[in-house]
Design a protein around this nucleic acid. Structure first.
Lengths: 350, 350
DNA sequence: TATCATATACTCTACTTGAGTATATGAGGG
DNA sequence: CCCTCATATACTCAAGTAGAGTATATGATA
């Protein structure tokens, strides 16, 4: 997903940096770089996809992901460092963890007065509802608070047509401000692809691409904070598009959402979010919480069962309001049997 | 792919680190961390998948990927830093670049006498055959030199049955040496999944998983160098399984190979490796160089054409030895039309 | 006990995919 | 010049998969 955005800066980006870099970097002076480990910890609570955020009172009420610096003396691996920080800051022990991406743009992590450059390594963690409830610090927030335009559970969200699309079209009409690569993809095309305009389909996996586009267009609070020139165009009339986060944490969260949405289709990670026993409809609702709510119930059953992802426990759940539902559990053996097991649902068409 | 291996260390890996980490890392002392940018630059030359390596004479003839430290003052972004280093070391300007993974295991990057910890950010770059030939420094090596067990172009490679499989089974029979996670996946199962033993299918994308397994079993020269205890079991009788590389570069290359193999199936990155005009059979041979050579010619044509990935140039290529082949070019517009265009070939069954 | 709401089973059609067969056409040898 | 060869390209066919709908099962509730 990230690579998709790459073609905007593809060819010979090196040219702008080459001279300075040659003179400075070749001496390989000790780099004043700090590595930040950041976790987007995702759960589904009451069919709502949530992420764990920390809010320090001194931070003007702005949310951030759990994070801390990587220390090569204290941490054996990057991942163990991350686990340590998260446990320390939230009291939560992590289960499934995967690395997302390493972000290092200059300016992105800048705080006033902070001169040291920070490179952020983002991680995705999934935790099941049960564990999610015993939390010492931090709180769970719906991820749609930060990305309201991603919330298609009640159809296309109003914020798109009302706020985002007209401003994006306006931005597309303005000429590019700074040096561009040799063959840039036209802004209109990027907008159309990312936001499924003009008859295109909304691709629920392009979360990061959409966020980066909004950032670039200066429509995101973080881009104003980072002093992007595009942001100044809008002045103070700009509504707040989703709650901002500290540093580049919203970008990491966007990456995380896109990754989960993509990954549940070819790996059985959805079960990291489920309790041991569950009904198929509960499973479906969890998938829908992640992807969007447009799955065909009967086909979903067939899909999940015929893929060998689950097996009946023998019990039933009986307060479902109708016929009792069979309880199932995840068949861990699938990963030993199939090359790419996952809930192979297709992209949702709206 | 990487995340698959995670479940071996999933639950509460944090425990082993928690006490030390709490005392040391919380003070957030300046981290003595250097960031290394490494590029696995891939091309296909004469139907052979190749990677660009640098060999310094002082290095005992060991190959390494182009790399250099990231300098936050000289480089605006991680990627531009990488491009700078590559151009400086090889004279090659990079086109398509994508980030792979950030590696930071203690011990993995250790050189004798080197105390500073290095975190490696691996990148994948693709370059077309034409550009690949104008190279100032470095040389192209078949990636199968480093991973002979991945070369299924002439059927199952001998090294698997002769050298690798018996030793892996032997390793699986020995008890685990160090602390393991709560519910480890049995070694036999991991071997079976990664190497497609006992009737399982060989999954050409699991390049990194296989390499990591061999590393863990001590069968890889790099694991001896890093002082893994498993390596000592084998003594000096162990044959060299593929050519070793500097630092953790072979791991980065494994990640790169796995990523290309996966990615060409859902993104049109294969065209980054092709000249502007090509015949469909040339395209097929390039895909086969990356994936393995078992594609059905007629269906490949149908697939590529019906997906709208290419359009005829109108010309033909006439020294093909038979009927002249139509020339095609990549239709860049597909990325504007389809959500996930790629050469959707299935996993090769052997 | 009737009704409701949900769970589960079954059907049907369109499309995709793997594999095979048939035809087209320039090159090269006689 | 013509035959043969090698490769390119077009077409066919059966099996499997996916999307969508209909029908039946069954505990809860009034």
């Amino acid at each position: 997903m990230v690579a998709d955005m790459n073609f905007k800066r593809r060819i010979r980006e090196v040219e702008s940096d080459a001279e300075t870099a040659h003179n400075v970097a070749t001496r390989s002076e000790p780099a004043g770089v700090e590595i930040g480990l950041n976790a987007a910890i995702v759960a589904v609570i009451d069919d709502e996809p949530v992420v764990l955020v920390i809010r320090n009172d001194g931070d003007a009420g702005i949310d951030g992901l759990p994070f801390g610096p990587f220390s090569p003396v204290a941490h054996r691996t990057l991942e163990s460092g991350l686990r340590t920080w998260v446990t320390e800051q939230t009291g939560l022990g992590l289960g499934y963890v995967e690395q997302l991406y390493t972000f290092g743009d200059r300016g992105r992590h800048a705080e006033p007065g902070d001169s040291m450059h920070v490179v952020s390594i983002g991680y995705l963690a999934l935790t099941e509802t049960g564990h999610a409830r015993d939390l010492a610090h931090g709180s769970w927030r719906s991820w749609y608070q930060f990305f309201p335009w991603e919330d298609w559970r009640k159809g296309k969200p109003d914020i798109l047509a009302a706020e985002i699309e007209p401003r994006l079209r306006q931005w597309a009409a303005t000429p590019a401000l700074r040096s561009t690569p040799v063959r840039p993809v036209p802004k209109e095309d990027r907008i159309r692809i990312c936001f499924g305009l003009d008859g295109g389909a909304w691709d629920e996996e392009k979360v990061l691409d959409r966020f980066e586009l909004l950032y670039e267009a200066g429509l995101i609070e973080e881009s104003r904070r980072d002093g992007r020139e595009a942001a100044s165009v809008w002045g103070s009339a700009l509504p707040r598009l989703g709650a901002p986060m500290k540093f580049d944490h919203r970008r990491i969260l966007a990456t995380a959402i896109g990754r989960v949405r993509a990954k549940i289709k070819y790996r059985p990670v959805i079960f990291e979010l489920m309790p041991d026993d569950f009904t198929l409809f509960e499973l479906q609702k969890t998938v829908e919480a992640i992807l969007g709510p447009h799955l065909h119930k009967q086909n979903f059953r067939r899909l999940v069962e015929s893929a060998g992802l689950v097996e009946p426990t023998g019990d039933v759940k009986t307060q479902t309001g109708g016929r009792p539902a069979k309880l199932f559990r995840f068949r861990r053996e699938v990963v030993l049997e199939r090359p790419a097991p996952g809930v192979r649902v297709k992209a949702v068409r709206i």
